[in-house]
Design a protein around this nucleic acid. Structure first.
Lengths: 190, 190
DNA sequence: CGGTCTCTTGACGGAGTTCAAAGCTAGTGG
DNA sequence: CCACTAGCTTTGAACTCCGTCAAGAGACCG
């Protein structure tokens, strides 16, 4: 359903019925099965995704052959790989559904004309990006100043439903620790 | 001078003479001495800065009382603390000049009316933020997958002039290591 | 030329990794 | 609905990178 994305947009900008109709004509809904990929390393990223329902991860395969989760995305967040999307170069990252999910797809080829017709979208995405960028700075702060244990406890206390939702080995690499060490942390009763 | 920021904007959007004049009337030039602050922890961030000349760092004081650099900024980059700027809450961060510098100041109180008069600025900042956000994702990737030593060598080889430009103890905390350990790395000839 | 800021050196300690193996769980097909 | 399998989690021992603390040596600026 497009109602979720329209609700989200209305929090930042105002659109009339005609404009909303233009949007829903251009955007596309897509279902993604658990473990299905929206992007694989080596491919060029040509779309931006708004998560209607479900949960995704953006990750990569390191030189050592292990997976490193860089970012999670849940309902009402946009997720994409901007570097590849903007430059047209092949991406190093994967975007994968952790659960059966549904996204709204904004294709790069439609972006320019849609933004030209609905200039307010520029503001909407500017505001979304400001928020996402601020969150990244905060994250870097935590990475450097909290131990793995402290980060895990913070996640667990602040977003308990989220910690339940994703496999431990994905959460571990997101926190910058190994699955083995996270398992040990959980065993130590607080 | 405003010529630097106008040149930068012309790379992303087109402005006519009248629009550029409106911009330069609203924006402000400010000189900042080495070690001067644009923002201190506890203050509310009310401005966004385009670096015309010089070098800045965004940092914070950790619980242990040490400085942690989160981000550097040099010529033609915007730097601010978006969380405080957007929410109006006091910031936890400092923004400080590393050299004698000059910035263009965009005040929050002018932002709304300026964006209303020059809607193209929405696009300009959207594009700037997309690039900055992509760079942060890449940075998180390096933080997790390179050791302190590998990150230092990459910085040194990729941005040698920059490594020269900032004090070692600032570079160390930016890389997530202690100044002592960075000193040791430098002593090991490659 | 004096003081503050910055960089270096070294000994010790701890948080987290690596590797290997075993135990558990959930989805799948028969 | 059960059994099997692949994927996920746990455990433990040895090891490593990097932090902490403390002291001293340069270097820069007024």
């Amino acid at each position: 359903m497009f109602s979720e994305i329209l609700t989200h947009m209305r929090k930042h900008i105002s659109l009339n019925a005609e404009e909303e109709e233009l949007l829903t004509r251009t955007l596309e809904l897509r279902d993604v099965k658990k473990k299905g990929h929206l992007l694989r390393a080596g491919e060029v990223c040509r779309e931006n995704y708004f998560i209607v329902q479900g949960c995704f991860r953006l990750y990569l395969i390191t030189d050592k052959g292990t997976e490193q989760v860089i970012q999670f995305g849940i309902e009402n967040w946009w997720i994409t790989e901007y570097f590849s999307l903007k430059t047209g170069e092949p991406s190093n990252f994967y975007i994968q559904a952790i659960e059966n999910s549904q996204v709204v797809v904004l294709k790069r080829k439609d972006e320019e004309s849609l933004f030209a017709q609905l200039p307010q979208l520029e503001k909407y995405f500017r505001l979304v990006l400001e928020k996402a960028y601020a969150a990244q700075l905060n994250r870097i702060h935590y990475i450097f100043n909290l131990t793995g244990e402290e980060q895990y406890k913070m996640m667990r206390d602040k977003y308990p439903e989220f910690v339940q939702r994703v496999p431990q080995y994905m959460l571990a690499t997101f926190l910058g620790i190994t699955p083995e060490f996270l398992s040990m942390l959980r065993a130590r009763k607080d």
